[in-house]
Design a protein around this nucleic acid. Structure first.
Lengths: 220, 220, 220, 220
DNA sequence: AATGAATGAGGTTTCATTCAT
DNA sequence: GATGAATGAAACCTCATTCAT
């Protein structure tokens, strides 16, 4: 995807504009203008606006799933909990590093499109599969509580997406910048605690460990 | 908003189309065609496509906030927990009853628009205010754990929005129909348990109550 | 086809331009400019440039076949020769009256297109059928010589089309204006003689009738 | 014209595409793609698309007129009829051998273009001149009937062009393949008979020669 | 209140050509 | 001689809106 400089300029401009105005709200003219590039090149390089969209979405999910897989492969050698923690960390970082792309992709995934359906079956079913395998493994090994796996994954997914789909909401209403390192740390902790409390069997111990590990004081 | 039949037909067609194709992906021609109404009337009644959008979003949030307020007013007479539970129930029902509108609005709220900013300051800040008051009240009255209120609300918001913004994801990947009564019941329970576990101080008791109230068995 | 004035203006402009520059050599902008009409109307009325093309071609052949059929229906009451003569007269007049349209249609029919194939099967097969019926009838009734019908029709078709497809050639090389009444008369005679000499059995008589009826003198 | 291989490949691809889609319906991109050649080369070799067109048309008519001239030069030594027969044979063969080019050229000649006008005055006037000389010579020598020469040539031209301009019509409606050797033979015979019947004074004899030379039986 | 013809701006894409390599 | 990235013009079409009726 990082072939020519011009192509890269188009991609960056497109991500920025799609991020803030949406795919349908952005014209190729704007993209070309922002990228300081001839309009024709968008069709020339990507086979049209739709092709550009598909490239971006595919690129996002390729990287996204790759993060999961890189940890999943170690499931044999590490504990299920450790594996899950690692994946969550990686996915938060991945989205943090591609937050413009992430917001736009998560939003676009919300439409009823052929493309969206393909993404569902190509990437998101795969993601669910990996999560499920890890949870079941943890369950068998008595690491995790026995719970309806699908609902747990669904909840986790919601938490993973939320800050990168609604950054403006966070910013405008909670004065939280979802792209700051500080936020990521704190949010990561939230999810780690979620694992301890909701997923693991041994969370009770941790809790009696004096203080709950997160949100110890009333803030803001 | 329920003035003439024609106007109502336009509104319904617009919601359906905005829901599946997004605001920018829908043309007034399509709306008029679906509503079996003359195109000009959209400009005539709503002052253009943008006006129609604003009407719909405003209507959604008026109703949304009204649900919150109707329970919030009873905060003096009922416990904070009860109040919170009520609001969650009402908001889930409200979105269930207006799920087409809900999905579209939640998606649109994701863009960087003047309109979105106005919605943030007009409705969502208000929503946050009510939630905060309830949580603080519960905290003072020792019903609730001491926690960073904003993060709690943020998490709650994510859970409230999720199924109504991503119904197709749920359907395609988890084979869950977010609009079925059965789902709502189960999801409500999840949130009720979330209150017990995460918000309330007394959740421990409940847990020792033999069985955890939700997710008792490993399902597919 | 003669609905609104505006539509009619577009049709006339299109015929004139398609006639001289060909379909692909004409832009909708030119048509709109020539018709003094907003460009959008071409899509609005005809569903695009292709739709306009189809309308024109269909209109031409509807009228064309109608001329044939109006005479063919009288085949029971008149002789085959008379019927054939009538049809030729009508078709020459029809093309004369729509010569701009005719040239363009005959040229376009020359391309390898789905549309062209449809025209072949819809109209031209029908035309051939009528001609064949007439020729066979004349043959049975001993009016016409026994000849391979298809080749005869093919030859007739060539003669019918020629002057309306190549008017500029006639004009530039032979200084003949194919659209003048004088030309039509003379050309009609040529075809009438062709019937007498090639089609009918009794042509011999006519020829010995002193002078050959056509081409009596050496002209330039 | 047969300089480099690349150039030749372009020419062949162009002829094939112009033949089926017309000049204006074909893009240089398609030509280059079909010829498996870099797009730029079309401008490089032919000075643009228009230059390619002119090359092709000129090449066709150079060869076309050359065929006529090669026989015309023998007019002193052979009879007018023989000369005419020879030319017709050669022209049918020439078009048969270049039928893709022929169809496209005959079609393009139908437009109102500067190029077309030049072709008219450069080649087609010359063609007419030769035909006329032959016919007049035959007339003076009492071989041919006295007839309006121009109309005779016009008719002959129509017959020469017809099968190579409308092959698809012949194919689709008459199930005749204009490019088969069988068709050419039969069509040649038709034209030879046309010479006997229409042009020559002695045709009567031939006819009483027992059988009419062509189309002796009623076929399908 | 409702219609539908008409508009002008702007959408995406394709075109033939050029230019540096 | 050959390449392919890049260009600007122009292609067709769709858009939301207006206006006379």
């Amino acid at each position: 995807m990082e072939e020519s400089i011009t192509k890269q300029k188009v991609i960056e401009a497109a991500i920025a504009l799609f991020n803030s105005k949406g795919y349908n709200g952005t014209s190729v003219r704007e993209i070309a203008y922002k990228a300081k590039v001839n309009i024709s090149l968008i069709s020339y390089y990507f086979g049209g606006k739709q092709g550009l969209l598909e490239d971006l979405i595919a690129a996002f999910f390729e990287g996204y799933v790759a993060e999961i897989e890189s940890s999943y492969q170690r499931l044999e050698t590490i504990s299920a909990k450790k594996c899950l923690q690692e994946i969550i960390l990686k996915l938060l970082s991945y989205q943090q590093n591609h937050h413009h792309l992430a917001r736009f992709v998560h939003r676009e995934i919300t439409l009823d499109t052929i493309l969206v359906r393909e993404v569902m079956t190509t990437y998101l079913r795969k993601e669910k599969y990996y999560f499920k395998e890890i949870l079941v493994r943890g369950s068998i090994q008595n690491e995790f509580k026995k719970q309806p796996v699908d609902y747990v994954i669904m909840q986790l997914k919601g938490m993973l997406i939320m800050p990168y789909l609604h950054p403006q909401y966070l910013n405008e209403v909670y004065y939280i910048n979802a792209y700051e390192e500080y936020f990521k740390e704190r949010y990561t902790k939230l999810l780690m605690d979620w694992i301890d409390f909701f997923i693991c069997r041994t969370h009770g111990i941790k809790k009696q460990d004096g203080m709950p590990s997160f949100f110890p004081v009333l803030s803001s």
